[in-house]
Amino acid sequence: MTTDERPAFGRHDPVMLRRSLELLAPALREPGAVVVDCTLGLGGHGEELLKTFPEARLVGLDRDTEALRLARARLAPYGERATLVHAVYDELPEVLDRLGTPRVQGVLFDLGVSSMQLDEAERGFAYARDAPLDMRMDQSTGPSAADVLNTYPPGDLVRILRSYGEEKQAKRIVEAVVRERAVEPFRTSARLVEVIRDALPQAVKRTGGNPAKRTFQALRIEVNGELAVLERALPSAVDALAVGGRVVVLAYHSLEDRMAKRVLGAGATSTAPADLPVVPEQYQPRLRLLTRGAELPDDDEVASNRRAAPARLRGAERIREANR
């Protein structure tokens, strides 16, 4: 049971909501349209999709059982128009197959950690409060952040911090972690933050906010396999779109955004050899980009919701079937 029993609508401000709806709108106005919220969370985007497009149906996926419980209560007034599924978003093809809905008109990804996960101290996502080092989005399975810190070889920890946290001081931090875990295994976030602070040079600690931020991000991504899941999920989402269907991706750090840029950009690029005078249809792009680069939240949204600040939004429309 969560320690915070506020209803879902009082705990989460959906990021770039109006722009997300605007981009998805042309695909969702027809009766029977299906939109998938691959990262349902507390149901903020999902509820607005159901309100705004009264003829559409929502399929909501989330790996977090507590988020699903709260979202289910929030979306209960919409009855059978909302189908919520306990699943990771790379399971999208299997979910749609089970539901008998192989093609959909809209897909939304609102990536990263949810407000609920950040706000509940016992989940261990937030470096600003002491809590068990868990960080699992689905607490019923898999190793925790403590397991990663206490058991991974030093080389793997350095790789994770550098690759997933873009942490320049990864080697120094890992050396300190390895020394400390030999004395006593890591169990809480406060001890990890303290070890990171002590390991870093003064000049590094004076810039860039909390010095533990990048390490916590890296551990969270590793624990939940976030980038590997996204690498599988984005192409599956594109494949699931009917012609005229649209996908919107909200990313919160550069690694996610680069992946979205690559997958959507590839779909919007001709696959024809460069010397062909006329490009046959099978080589034509199957996507049309809806955004020029990544769009950012405006100043008013960032002022009212600080968690919107790092958001980067990209969208694309399916314009033809796959190459044959």
Rank of each mutant, 00 (worst) to 15 (best):
R6W: 14
A8M: 10
P14E: 13
V15F: 14
R18C: 13
S20G: 11
P26S: 10
L28S: 15
R29S: 04
P31F: 13
A33Q: 06
V34I: 12
V34L: 10
V35W: 00
V36N: 01
H45W: 02
G46I: 12
L49W: 05
T52A: 04
T52M: 03
T52S: 05
F53C: 04
L58R: 03
E66F: 09
L68E: 04
A71T: 09
A71Y: 05
L75H: 13
G79C: 06
E80G: 14
H86L: 06
Y89E: 07
D97S: 14
L99G: 05
T101E: 08
P102V: 15
R103A: 15
D110E: 05
G112D: 15
S115C: 03
S115L: 03
Q117Y: 02
D119I: 07
D119Q: 05
A121P: 09
F125I: 01
A128G: 01
R129I: 00
A131N: 02
S140Y: 07
T141A: 08
A145C: 01
A145K: 08
D147E: 13
V148I: 13
P153G: 10
D156F: 13
L157N: 04
V158G: 08
L161C: 09
L161N: 09
R162S: 08
Y164C: 10
G165A: 10
E167A: 15
K168C: 11
K168H: 14
A176K: 12
E180T: 14
R181T: 14
A182L: 08
A182G: 09
P185Q: 10
F186G: 02
R187D: 01
S189W: 04
S189G: 08
V195E: 01
P201F: 14
Q202K: 12
K205G: 10
K205T: 12
P211T: 14
A218S: 08
L219E: 03
R220L: 02
V229Y: 00
L230Y: 03
A233I: 05
L234A: 00
V243N: 01
L250S: 03
L250K: 09
H253K: 07
A260L: 03
K261F: 06
K261M: 08
V263E: 03
L264F: 06
L264Y: 07
A268F: 04
A268M: 01
T269K: 00
T271F: 01
A272F: 01
A272T: 05
D275E: 11
L276D: 04
V278T: 08
L289V: 06
A303I: 10
S304F: 07
R307K: 05
A308W: 07
A309H: 04
A311K: 03
R314N: 00
